[in-house]
Each structure stands twice: as structure tokens, then as C-alpha cells.
Write a protein that binds this DNA or RNA. Sequence first.
DNA 1: GGTAGACCTGGACGC
DNA 2: GCGTCCAGGTCTACC
Length: 321
Amino acid sequence: MPRFSVPVPADFRLWRDCCSYGYFLLAPNTWDVDTQTLTRGLRVASGPVSVSVSQEHGAGEPLRVTTDRAVAAAERADISRQLTRMLRLDEPRDLMREFHKADPRWKRVGRGRLFRSPTMFEDVIKTVTSCNVTWPSTVVMNRRLCEVLGEAVGDTHTFPTPAKIARTRPATLRARCRVGYRDARIVELARLFMLPRSRGGVEPVWFEHPATPDDAVHDALLELPGIGPYAAANIMQLLGRYTRLPLDTESVRHGRTVLGMKGETKAMMKRMHEHYRPFGVHAFRSYWFELWEFYERKHGPAHTWERDSTGKMFTAALLSK
DNA sequence: GGTAGACCTGGACGC
DNA sequence: GCGTCCAGGTCTACC
């Protein structure tokens, strides 16, 4: 199997930083608990390729990347770029320091990076499939999207491209991918990712550019079909903009059981926003790692979770039991 | 600006 | 095994 290395920051640990957000359990991502390896299909110029990532030793050791076929040097660079986005290998060091200064609870364990997808498009679709649905359904939707519309490669798939979904009939998405009423919205989102910003389309470069103000990104996200306040705030954090909180019923459970808050849902949400406001531009990470720690206390370290057993557990309804 | 109800799926529950 | 109820965020119609 062809193999190459990807350098990482000195504080990077694959088992911790990959298993830091629920998307590591969603197809086409597969986390092998026994070998502590992440495998999935990625697209490069010559077509789909199955990529496995592991880290032999401790923090700072380069990633060992294995592909199921030979890839050109430029394609290895492309794979590195996609892994860098997923694992946030380029998270600015001073921003991590600032976060740990603002919330020292996570300095010792080194938490700071949040797993995401190789593209903004995949992050947006994953967010839409997590809205108004329990986690096991989100798992099914992503698996079927990949199996039906992604490209099979090795034992895995790629995530479907905007072009592929844009060509798919909503009824097909509903019937074969079990996305329910989200069908037309997902197809419309895919079409928007095919259009330039001048024609009302979504250009990830604009959303990801540091010079684009948070408010502008937020407003633009709310214009998209299927994206409301929760989804917009969640996509913001996936874009590395951590000021806003994507609060949902799970957040309310956290407020009640962990923070000891009381009251109706609406009042609780307001109090949650106030509670994390002092963390400023780091608010989401402070909130999320608190939530994640609760999950890990309940079910063990995330790097030991299996997608089809423990990985199905973390929903508000199941955790409140 | 705020609110009620529909949207769809899968799991829980009662019979 | 079947029917009913419920959770979940967004969208639209309505006040």
C-alpha cells in the first residue's frame, strides 16, 4: 500500500483531535477503535481514493497516511490539504493559546481542535441531516447518501459531490437516502454550491476567508434553504468561527443536568447564551468540550466509541435516562 | 416580531 | 405485529 507522512503541530494527537466532534462517526468517516485509524474516501484529480490515517506514537508525531492505490505527488499534497481541514492541523497556535487562557480547563488535556469534513459542502449537508432528527437517523442518512450517491472505493465511499446531488431527483433522495422532507432542500443546497456568489451561489472561499466578517457569514448562511438559527451557528463553528452557540434541545439538557439551570426552554436558551458569553470568540469550544466531557464520562473516551453502538447513544432523549 | 402547525423518520410504548 | 405517540429544527401562514 502506498504510504506517506503528513507533519502535524507539536500538540496534535489523532485519537483526541479526530474524536472531538460527532462527525467522526458519520459516513464516509470510519474510526477503527482497535487500530485507532481513520479511514474514508477522498476525491483527488485522478478519481476517488481510500485514505487511512494513523499516528504511531505520541503528540507531534507525523500522521501516517496510507492510500489504496498510487497517487501523484500533487494528489498527495491535495490529500494533505483535505486532512489539514478535517483535523484542523492549521489551527493558529496563538488562537489555541488564547482559548486555553480564556478557558484553562482544556489546557492540560490539550483540547482545542474540532473534527470537521474535508469540504464546507459536506459540513453543510451533515448539519442539515442532523436537524430535527435523532442521532441514529443522522447516521443512517449519511451512510445512505454515501452508498447511493458517493463513489465506492476500497471498503469505503466518498461523500457525494454538489454536482452529483444537484443532478439527483428529490424523490430519489427521500426514497433511497431516507432524508425525508429535507430532500428538496438538500438538492437546492447542492445547486447553490455549483453557482458563483454573484448569482446567489455559495462560494466556500468567501465563507472561509478570515477577512469576511462573522455577521456577513451568519446572514448569508441564514439565507440558505434548510438553514435556520441552529444550523447557521453550527456551520459557523465548523468554519472556525466560535462566537455563536448552536443551541438545541441537547443544550437545554446540558443546562439542566450539568449547569443546574432551571426554567422553560426559551428562557434556558437565553441563559445558556449569557453563561458562555464571557468566553467571547471561544464560546463554542468552551461549551462543546464541556458537553463532550459529559458524553465521555457516560460512555468512555470518544476514541473507544463504535459508530454502530456507543456512537448511536448521544442524543438528548437517551442521555437524559 | 411572535407563534402554531406541518414537515418525515425511527424508536418507544401499549395492546 | 400493529397502531399511536413523540422527538427533533426549519419553514410558512397568520396574528
